[in-house]
Amino acid sequence: MFYRVTLSFNSTFMKKVFLLLAALAGLASCHKTGNKQAEKVSPQDSTVLYVALMPTVDCLPFYYAEQQGIFDSLNANIEIRNYMAQMDCDTAFCRKHVDVAYTDLIRAALLQSKDTALNVIMRTDGSHELITAFSKRLKSPKQLKEKMVGMARHSVTDYLCSEIVKKGNISPDELYKPQINDISLRAAMVQNATIDAAFLPEPYATQARLLKNRSIYSTPKEKIHLMCMMASWQAQKDPKKAKLLHQLIQGYDLAVQKMKDKSNQDSARNLLKPFGLKQQVLDSLKLPKYHKASVPDAKQVQKAIEWLRAQELISKQYNGDTLVTSFLTK
Rank of each mutant, 00 (worst) to 15 (best):
K243C: 08
D238Q: 09
K243I: 11
K223W: 08
W233A: 10
K243M: 10
K237E: 15
L245R: 00
Q234R: 14
L244R: 02
L254H: 08
D238N: 11
Q234S: 12
L226S: 08
M229S: 00
S232Y: 05
E222F: 07
H225A: 09
L248T: 04
L254P: 11
L245C: 04
H246W: 00
L245P: 00
Y252W: 11
S232I: 10
I224G: 02
C228H: 07
A235S: 13
Q247I: 00
I224A: 07
L254C: 06
H225I: 06
W233G: 12
Q250H: 06
S232T: 14
Y252N: 10
K240M: 06
H246S: 02
D238C: 13
E222P: 05
D253W: 05
D253L: 09
I224M: 02
M229T: 04
E222S: 05
L245S: 02
P239I: 06
K237H: 08
Q250M: 07
A242T: 01
L244T: 03
L254W: 01
M227P: 06
H246Y: 02
Q236K: 13
I249W: 03
Q250E: 15
K243N: 11
K221V: 03
K221M: 06
M229N: 03
C228K: 04
M230W: 01
K223N: 05
I224D: 00
L245Y: 01
W233Y: 11
A242E: 04
I224S: 08
K223S: 08
L226H: 06
I249R: 00
P239W: 10
P239G: 10
L254Q: 13
L248D: 07
G251S: 00
W233T: 15
L244V: 14
K221N: 15
Q250T: 15
H225M: 06
L248Y: 08
W233H: 15
K243V: 09
G251Q: 06
S232P: 07
C228Y: 05
L226C: 09
K240G: 00
L254A: 07
A242F: 12
K221C: 01
K240W: 03
Q236R: 11
G251T: 00
M229A: 04
H225G: 06
E222T: 02
I249P: 05
G251P: 04
D253G: 14
I224T: 05
I224F: 04
H246C: 03
Q250A: 13
D238L: 10
K240P: 02
L248G: 07
L248P: 12
E222N: 14
Q236L: 13
A242W: 00
A235V: 04
Y252T: 01
Q247T: 00
L248S: 12
H225T: 03
I249H: 01
Q234D: 12
Q247L: 12
D238G: 11
D238T: 09
G251M: 01
Q247D: 14
K243G: 04
Q234N: 14
L226K: 07
K237F: 08
M227E: 12
I249M: 13
I249G: 05
D238R: 05
W233P: 08
M227W: 07
H246L: 01
L244K: 07
K221R: 03
P239D: 14
P239S: 13
M227S: 08
Q247V: 01
Q236A: 14
P239T: 10
D253I: 02
K223H: 10
K223A: 13
K221H: 06
A231H: 03
G251W: 00
L245E: 00
Y252V: 01
H225Y: 13
L226P: 05
W233V: 10
D238I: 02
K240Q: 14
